[in-house]
Design a protein around this nucleic acid. Structure first.
Lengths: 238, 238
DNA sequence: AATCGAAGGATCGTTGAACAATTTGAATTT
DNA sequence: AAATTCAAATTGTTCAACGATCCTTCGATT
């Protein structure tokens, strides 16, 4: 269940290292952050499925870090709702139910529509366009994985138009939650393929400055997407 | 700077306590959570001002907990953006700048407007009304503190209309960030008083089902509020 | 005299071990 | 079959230690 993936060992102290004199150090992530990143990666990848229990000591050993550090990583992931902490019982990979999915879409409707209504710079819109084309290429190549990724890029680019670090961060978390759900639900191979025309239409509306139109297209898209996903859920899970 | 406020001591073990047989225990918050709550309280109250450094060992001693526990609490507060962690330098109370304020308002515009557009149940709207009246009473009583609180209740009730746990949580964090800023900026005693008519108008529009009108009133309110706050900032801080 | 660089001290980051409290599941009893 | 007891496993929390890093001070150099 746990592939042994100690990441790059943390420092052997060579005697005379000058610690990069200038003020511009690259801010090496702490061990706790790296553990969180590693777990996040496995969650996104589907190695860790919803409901899986994450035992502190096991993860500590597997990653070669102390329990306390794992704990800090858990706190981070819990704040992102990727894992759930049951007091005295342990940490479990979040298992989204129908209500969560609806809630996630409520958040997406709020911030994506708002971002579209506010419009964006030429570069922002170019990034949206790039995601649309990325999706088309993935569809032609028949790469479903890449298609899903492109779709997330599309919606990420939509939110990025607002130029808000906080909205970007929220969107990132929400997309991570959705990824979690996707691994649980078995869905059509071309689940995303249906949305390519929507993405194209929304992007076109943005490019021609029809913000209101883009917003209503997006809203309709999100509603439909939520419906489809709920159907999948009904079929795929108990 | 730190009032000694060890919270209720954590358990002396009496020999034969039966641990409340049933499954319905009240989920006592962990020590880390209580530390986070205590710090959050002091941040909201203004005891801890923006820029203040929070030293692990000091807080650990003051609250009578271990450094590791304080660390977990810091992680929680950092995820809420109430404190900022500078690697190897320490944890500081977040010090919002003009960009942060703008960003916070971007988030508020997104989620508050969206919530209003979606409308709410009779109870939801009644809660909004209650917050409006709470504000009126505070204004009459000349209680500025209560006025600010009522205003936050008003906007909290707006978002609560969406019935989304995630949006509520986001709004809670955003309001906490604003409170942080308010303690730093010295503003007119009746800063909020100007907004009472706006709140009333928005609430009235909601009650009569004019959702679009309520949404545009709210949007205008938020824009004006952001402007006012930016002015205060320009005057009050360097 | 101003600048640069080398000690010193303080604090953070992380570890490892320890122990109490709690949950869980199995064995035992009624 | 239901209830009770008991032991094992895991979490929650503390404590002590140590290297790494930052900040300050002090002294040497140009």
């Amino acid at each position: 269940m746990w592939r042994s993936c100690k990441f790059s060992g943390m420092t052997s102290s060579s005697p005379t290292v000058r610690p990069a004199p200038g003020r511009l150090r690259v801010a090496v992530p702490s061990v706790a952050e790296r553990v969180a990143a590693e777990l996040r990666r496995q969650l996104a990848e589907g190695t860790l499925l919803p409901g899986t229990r994450l035992t502190e000591s096991t993860i500590a050993e597997d990653l070669g870090v102390s329990r306390n550090t794992v704990r800090e990583a858990f706190a981070e992931l819990a704040s992102e709702r990727l894992v759930v902490r049951l007091p005295n019982r342990g940490v479990f990979v979040a298992n989204l139910d129908a209500g969560d999915i609806h809630d996630v879409y409520t958040v997406r409707r709020a911030i994506e529509v708002s971002a579209v209504r506010g419009g964006g710079s030429a570069e922002d819109i170019a990034a949206v366009r790039a995601a649309v084309e990325e999706g088309k290429r993935a569809a032609e190549a028949g790469d479903d994985e890449a298609l899903g990724t492109a779709n997330q890029h599309f919606h990420g680019a939509i939110v990025a138009m607002a130029g808000s670090p906080r909205l970007n961060s929220i969107m990132g978390q929400v997309l991570a939650e959705m990824r979690l759900y996707f691994h649980k639900a078995t869905m059509d191979a071309d689940f995303y393929r249906h949305y390519l025309p929507d993405n194209e239409a929304i992007c076109a509306a943005l490019e021609s400055g029809e913000l209101d139109r883009a917003a209503s297209l997006l809203l309709a898209y999100l509603d439909r997407s939520e419906d489809n996903l709920s159907d999948v859920h009904g079929a795929g899970a108990g």
